[in-house]
Amino acid sequence: MRETFKAAKTRNSVAVMFISQADPGWDLTDGTRAPLRDPKTLTETDGQTDGFKDFLLAFREEAIAFRKPIAYVYGDSHYYRVDKPFLDAQGRRIENFTRVETFGDNAANGTNDVNWVKVTVNPRSREVFSYQPQIVPGNRVAVPSP
C-alpha cells in the first residue's frame, strides 16, 4: 500500500484506486457487514486484535498526505454503496477518500444481487472517479405481493 502511494506521488498521479476483497470496517455504522471501529483510533470496538488496525492507521496517514482522490473498492458483504466513511484522528471526514462496496450474490437474503459497478475515470474532473451501478435485468428477484 505504501509503495502504491509512493509510486503515485513519483508519477504525479491524479488519483489512486485500491481493490481488495475484505471490508476492514471504517467506523461505527454497520456491524452487520464489517467490524465496528472507533473511527478516531481505528480499534475494533469488541476489543479483539485484528489485522486491519495497523493497515488502516498507515492507510489513513497516506490518504491524508496524498490529498488527491482515493477509491477503496471491495466486495465482502456485497452491499452496494459509495460513501465517505473514513475519518482522521480528530473525527473529521477524509474528503479525498471514497469507499465503493460492490454488488454480490446475497442469496441468503432472498435476492440475486449479482450486478456490477461501472467506474468512469476522468483525470480532468475534480473527483476523477465516478460510479454507476449496472443492474443485470435477469438477476432481479420478484418480490411477492402482500
Rank of each mutant, 00 (worst) to 15 (best):
T41P: 04
F52G: 01
R124E: 14
K53S: 03
R37Q: 07
R126I: 11
S130G: 08
V100Q: 11
V14G: 11
N112K: 15
F5V: 00
D105V: 14
N109L: 15
Q48Y: 07
E101W: 04
Y131R: 05
D88W: 06
R81D: 11
T29V: 09
T10W: 03
L42C: 04
D38R: 00
F55Y: 13
F55I: 07
A71F: 06
A65S: 08
I64D: 01
P123I: 12
K6I: 13
L87E: 02
V82M: 12
V136C: 12
R92M: 08
D113W: 15
V100W: 05
V141T: 15
E44S: 11
D105P: 10
P24C: 00
M1E: 12
P123M: 10
Y74D: 10
T29M: 08
P133W: 01
E3I: 04
F5W: 02
N96P: 03
Q134S: 13
A89R: 08
P133C: 04
N139L: 15
P144M: 08
V141F: 08
F55M: 11
A63R: 00
F103Q: 03
S13T: 09
V82S: 10
D88A: 08
G51W: 05
A71M: 11
L36N: 02
R2C: 04
V114E: 15
D76L: 06
M1Y: 09
P35H: 06
L36G: 00
N112F: 15
P39S: 06
A22E: 01
D113M: 15
D23F: 00
P35T: 04
I64V: 14
R140A: 05
Q48N: 11
T120V: 12
L42K: 02
K40F: 03
P137H: 03
Y79V: 13
V141A: 12
P144V: 09
E62G: 00
Q21F: 10
K6G: 15
P146D: 14
R37W: 05
S13D: 15
I70P: 02
S125K: 06
A58D: 10
Q90S: 10
T4K: 09
Y80T: 02
F129W: 09
E127H: 11
E3Y: 02
R60T: 00
R33P: 05
D113C: 14
N122T: 15
A142C: 13
T32L: 13
D38T: 01
M17V: 03
R99Y: 07
G31F: 08
G31I: 09
V100T: 06
K118T: 14
Q134A: 12
A108I: 13
A71N: 03
A107P: 14
K68V: 07
V119P: 06
Y80R: 10
V100L: 11
W116T: 14
T120D: 12
R99C: 03
D76S: 08
E62W: 00
N96S: 04
D54G: 11
R81G: 12
K6S: 11
V143A: 14
G47C: 03
A8K: 02
Q90R: 08
W26H: 04
M17Q: 03
P69T: 07
K84R: 10
D50N: 12
F86H: 04
A63C: 12
T10D: 08
A108P: 15
D23W: 00
